Computed example of a mutant assay.
Amino acid sequence: MGDRDWRPFIYGGLASIVAEFGTFPIDTTKTRLQIQGQKIDPRHVELRYTGMVDCFVKTSKQEGIKALYCGIWPAVLRQATYGTIKFGTYYSLKKVLAARRADGGSKEHLATNTFCAAFAGGFSSAIANPTDVLKVRMQVGDEKRNLVRCFAEIYRVEGVRGLWRGVGPTSQRAALIAAVELPAYDACKRALLPALGDAPLNHLASSLLASLGSAVASTPLDVIRTRLMNQRKLKDTTEPTQRIYKGTIDCFMQTVRNEGFLALYKGFVPTWLRMGPWNIIFFITYEQLKQFY
């Protein structure tokens, strides 16, 4: 591969890291809202927060502003892997498949774009899953060690499987988000070109429109994967020390049965509010980096 082929990977990773720093406190509130009120997990039965703002204020007062950024380094590490692979794979694979079509890639093809996005999202998320587990554990507030010690403790107590806990719904969620978000962004950007041109205002509007659909589609899977990642099972025991979810379907059923269907949309507001700014920061950064092509 030539040097130019690697640039979507590098720019995607850099833009993802910038966006992560800008929106991480919102992600922390989302995670804490998603794990509260679980009948099956005695650690998180209590409803501590009434919403995103309440969670933000209480966390800041009780634990300090730094608590809102607890887990930022595994999040940055995640974006350095997940973001790099996801966006680089999407744009590179789309280019390869477009060149093989009869039209030579002169027109955007929704089915091709959706397939490339879903594959890139699921594949990259599965690889980066351990960093996601670390991030969730640290955001919840139960894990106070630094990145390396937290990683070592999960591996020691729960084994390799602990680092890939929740990989199923995580990959499914990432594939779903990418399948909605990336083609939607490309389509919106193309539709707005005559009016706004290839300018930051176009990138801003396209990012906002793309984030709404992906937030609606992905929040239930996000709730499930957060709860699966936060639960612990010792590697040397056949029976868990507490009741845990057996998998994606069991978590879905238990959540709906014990808390109602709307529990699958816990954290929706911060999810959406984070996706909007995250996409804005990412795509504007990415588009500016593309000027170096």
Rank of each mutant, 00 (worst) to 15 (best):
T29R: 01
T29L: 13
T29G: 09
T31W: 07
T31S: 07
T31Y: 08
R32C: 10
L33G: 08
L33T: 04
Q34P: 07
I35M: 11
I35L: 08
Q36D: 07
Q36F: 01
Q36S: 01
Q36K: 01
G37F: 00
G37Y: 03
G37T: 03
Q38H: 03
K39T: 11
K39L: 02
K39D: 07
I40K: 06
I40L: 02
I40Q: 02
I40Y: 04
D41T: 01
D41I: 03
P42F: 03
P42C: 06
R43K: 14
H44A: 03
H44L: 05
H44R: 10
V45Y: 02
V45F: 02
V45A: 13
E46G: 04
R48T: 15
Y49I: 08
Y49G: 04
Y49K: 05
Y49P: 11
Y49Q: 09
T50N: 11
T50Q: 13
T50C: 05
G51L: 12
G51K: 06
G51I: 08
G51D: 13
M52C: 09
M52Q: 06
V53N: 07
D54Q: 02
D54Y: 06
D54P: 00
D54I: 03
D54R: 00
C55K: 02
C55P: 03
C55Q: 04
F56V: 03
F56W: 10
F56T: 02
F56H: 04
F56D: 05
F56A: 01
V57N: 06
V57T: 12
V57F: 11
V57D: 10
K58M: 15
K58T: 08
T59K: 00
T59I: 05
T59W: 04
K61C: 13
Q62C: 10
Q62G: 05
Q62W: 08
Q62Y: 12
Q62P: 06
Q62N: 10
E63M: 04
G64D: 02
G64H: 01
I65R: 00
I65Q: 02
I65W: 07
I65L: 13
K66P: 06
K66N: 12
A67E: 15
A67T: 09
A67P: 11
L68Y: 02
L68M: 01
Y69F: 08
Y69W: 09
C70P: 04
C70F: 11
G71S: 04
I72R: 01
I72A: 06
W73T: 14
W73Y: 13
W73V: 09
W73M: 10
W73L: 08
P74A: 01
P74M: 01
P74H: 00
P74V: 03
P74R: 00
P74F: 01
A75V: 10
A75Y: 09
V76E: 00
V76Y: 03
L77E: 01
L77Y: 06
L77S: 12
L77H: 02
L77C: 07
L77N: 04
R78G: 05
R78H: 14
R78K: 09
Q79A: 13
A80H: 08
A80F: 13
A80D: 01
A80C: 12
T81Q: 06
T81D: 02
T81M: 12
Y82Q: 11
Y82A: 14
Y82N: 14
G83C: 10
G83R: 04
T84M: 13
T84A: 12
